[in-house]
Design a protein around this nucleic acid. Structure first.
Length: 310
RNA sequence: UGCAACAACAAC
């Protein structure tokens, strides 16, 4: 089974789900029964390709297990077919298969992405009433959901509630909080969250730093952005293309184009090549400052660096 | 070996 599952996963990853389906049949014929992992791999891959109906049909021939339901529910949510997702959730209960924290979190996260935090909160209530405790993923999805609707206060309240319930925030949760604060221009508060996470022994990553650099950049606070950049380097965290691009943007917004260009050259020399967004930041900055000729030169240099305009 | 959460540009 392990041999077959490894192959199934590899086939699915390379977009050869149909090959995987054939292999699934073949393994049974050769006397090696597929297990729950085999089923979930196939169903999940079909869903990710948007072939949800097909996945559901196929799943009918498998044992009804939670991960397969989760993959299907996730698939229907991605297609914004929340009605069907809720039907499946009901079907689970009817068949005596208890949804787990992942099941509910999938629904909550997708509803949040669709902009419906309020319904997500209702699902949270439902899972708790059924004795299923939300975890860090659940709370992070909801907090992000409130923030993306501009409901900063409710997002922060939920953060406090999560802490009260004894859930220890991880780097991703902190990053979500920092991003929410930055998006509402509360960069000073975001910075104090960075300090708080460090005090609590949670290591910031390149996303943490990029989020803060971007926050300062949007407020045209080059000193703030630079301070974060230096802090990132000092901590031994390597900037990626996003971090570089945020820093290029910070420089461009205050008209420091020579330094921005130097930074891009730096990237090209390291193994972090600039991308289209990096050049868009530079070109937009130059245009804002009326330096259209330089912008045209940057546009040419973009092609030299192998970046296509979008 | 399988299912869920985080960051950067623009236009509409």
């Amino acid at each position: 089974v392990f041999t077959y599952n490894i192959l199934l996963k590899a086939l699915c990853k390379n977009g050869r789900v149909d090959g995987a389906r054939k292999l699934l049949k073949e393994m049974s014929n050769k006397g090696c029964s597929p297990d729950n992992v085999s089923y979930t791999t196939i169903v999940s891959s079909l869903c990710k390709e948007g072939r949800v109906e097909e996945a559901r049909e196929l799943a009918k021939s498998f044992a009804p297990i939670v991960p397969v339901y989760n993959a299907l529910i996730s698939g229907y949510c991605q297609e914004c077919e929340f009605g069907t997702a809720f039907d499946l959730l009901n079907e689970m209960s009817v068949r005596g298969i208890d949804p787990n924290v992942i099941t509910y979190t999938i629904v909550i996260n997708n509803l949040c992405d669709a902009g419906n935090v309020d319904l997500s909160m209702a699902v949270l209530g439902k899972m708790i009433s059924r004795g299923c405790d939300p975890n860090i993923h659940t709370f992070t999805s909801l907090i992000k959901g409130f923030f993306s609707k501009g409901r900063l206060h409710e997002g922060c309240d939920l953060w406090s509630r999560m802490i009260r319930e004894g859930i220890v925030p991880n780097t991703i949760a902190y990053n979500t909080l920092i991003h929410g604060l930055c998006a509402s221009n509360f960069v000073v508060e975001a910075l104090s969250v960075l300090h708080q996470m460090e005090r609590n022994g949670c290591t910031p990553n390149v996303t943490t730093y990029s989020t803060l650099i971007d926050g300062f950049a949007k407020l045209e606070d080059l000193d703030g952005a630079t301070e974060i950049w230096n802090r990132m380097i000092r901590s031994g965290c390597y900037p990626n293309v996003v971090a570089y691009t945020c820093m290029v943007d910070a420089l461009c917004r205050v008209g420091m184009f020579e330094r921005a260009t130097d930074l891009i050259e730096n990237m090209a020399r390291s193994n972090t090549s600039p991308n289209t967004l990096t050049f868009n930041a530079l070109i937009r900055g130059l245009c804002r400052y009326g330096r259209v000729n330089c912008a045209m030169k940057a546009f040419v240099s973009m092609g030299i660096h192998g970046c296509l305009p979008n």
